[in-house]
Amino acid sequence: MKSIWIIAKRELQSFFDSLIAYIMLILFLGFSGFFTWLYGTDIFLVNQASLQSFFNIAFWTLFFFIPAITMRMLAEEKKTGTIELLLTKAVSDRQVVLGKFLACFLLVAIALAFTLPYYITIANIGKVDHGAVWCGYLGLLLMSAAYISIGLFTSSITNNQIVAFLLAIFAGLFLHLIFNVLAGNFTGFLGQLFYTLSLSVHFDSLSRGVIDSRDIIYFVSIVIIGILLAELNLAKRNLTSR
């Protein structure tokens, strides 16, 4: 556990030492703030004391930002060779992956924490459904965790950051959009399958304020699969040929 935190701390530090963290925070807050308060189907147009419009925006901005943070996590270490130094220290492959996961997750959590003033503002100008808001945040966090684990996996299969980014977006696009579209085009078992696989379906139900164990299980299993695949990729160097 301690090793995971040591690795996560270093990654977080490097986010804030380079400009990545600041750029990510500014862009995320800028985008989501603009579309929540100023433009499009913003809060004043909807004229309801709800954060639904923010959640809809964050749903898309995080989709693009998360691969941008995760792409370098393992790919860069593999390219520069620092992975060798890291993995010959007294840590397991899993601790390395989990440490990196934790760092990305904390960065996203920080970004989301900066949007809490939106919530406070709205709570002051109308009657807000507190349960729905917290469920929405929970949904964003779970969705981020899922995309981070996918991003870590794609970062583990290549040592080119751009490839890792594009692969993560590509994989994410299926969960984010394509499965949902397919679900509408098919009926019966296939339709049900695509419906279950679609991330947006699970996110929507959470952001409306319904906590369903199926949604939670869906997100958690994506996280676990992603992390395991990333770990497996690191462990591949250890395969013995006979």
Partner: peptide
């Protein structure tokens, strides 16, 4: 272990890096 080509985290300060290595070990 000092690997060939000596890979290091270039974005870290020397002291930070040594502290990180010590903690990990």
């Amino acid at each position: 272990y000092l690997p060939e080509h000596n890979p290091l985290y270039l974005d870290m300060a020397v002291l930070d890096y040594l502290e990180f290595s010590a903690a990990l070990q």
